[in-house]
Simulated assay, not measured.
Amino acid sequence: MRILYFALLTLFLLACENDPTNRNPFLQEVPFRFDLNLNLPLYNGLNTIGNPVYVGNNGVGTRGAFVMRSGIGDEFVAWEASCPNHAPNSCSTMTIEGQNAICSCEDFEYSLFTGQHLNRPDDGARYYDLLFYRAVLSGNTVVISN
């Protein structure tokens, strides 16, 4: 019985992997919560699929967030507005171009549907996709949080 217990404990400990290489070293994951009322003109664009909105209020992420309705119904996505491939600086707050976010520092481009880095250089270096935030529709309000 002791051997079985020891084997299960060992298996459990080996199954719990903590991979710190997946963590983006450039962006802190700041806890926040912000409500977007879809009745307000500022966030009315979120009623249309594929129409991203920049939320630059203090306390929302590091440099704000991009929020977009990604599908029919209550499907929303939210992403950090600071470029994930370098530390925040004067050029790291990205801009919206269609359904993509553009970083003016290196002209990196990211999909606001998937968060994927679209023009990743093929130089062997590690590049990161957008930092994801939770976005949940509650009534007529989208709650974004981390």
Rank of each mutant, 00 (worst) to 15 (best):
G56P: 09
I3H: 08
I3E: 15
L112P: 09
F108N: 14
G73C: 11
A78F: 07
L36N: 02
T93W: 05
N140Q: 14
N18Y: 09
P41F: 04
F66I: 10
N57I: 07
L27S: 04
L4H: 09
A135L: 11
R2H: 08
N140T: 10
C103P: 03
N89E: 13
Q28W: 09
I96Y: 00
L8F: 14
T95H: 02
Y54F: 07
I72N: 12
S104V: 12
P121C: 06
G73D: 13
T21G: 03
P31W: 10
R2C: 07
C16W: 08
Q99L: 10
S70Q: 07
N140D: 14
H86V: 08
Y133H: 15
L46D: 05
Y54W: 00
A87Y: 14
S111E: 02
I49A: 04
E75S: 12
Y128A: 01
V136E: 15
P52W: 05
P84A: 03
D129L: 08
D19M: 03
F66C: 08
L36Y: 03
Y54T: 08
V30H: 05
L9G: 11
S145G: 10
V60N: 01
E109K: 13
F132E: 14
T62D: 06
G59M: 13
D19R: 03
V77Q: 06
E106I: 01
L13Y: 11
L40F: 02
L137G: 06
F132W: 08
L46Q: 01
G56M: 05
I3C: 01
S138L: 08
N24P: 06
I144C: 04
A78C: 09
V60P: 05
R23T: 14
N44I: 11
L4N: 11
T48Y: 04
I102V: 14
T48F: 03
S145L: 11
L38I: 13
P84H: 07
G98D: 11
A81Q: 11
L8G: 08
C83D: 15
N18E: 13
R23N: 07
D122V: 06
L4G: 01
A135K: 04
A15G: 11
G139V: 12
P25D: 03
Y54A: 08
L42S: 04
A81D: 10
C83V: 09
L14T: 11
F34G: 00
E75Y: 01
V30D: 09
S92I: 09
G59L: 14
P20C: 00
P84G: 02
A65Y: 04
V142P: 07
G124S: 06
R2A: 12
L118N: 07
P25H: 04
T93N: 11
Y5K: 13
N44W: 10
N37A: 13
N51Y: 05
F113L: 12
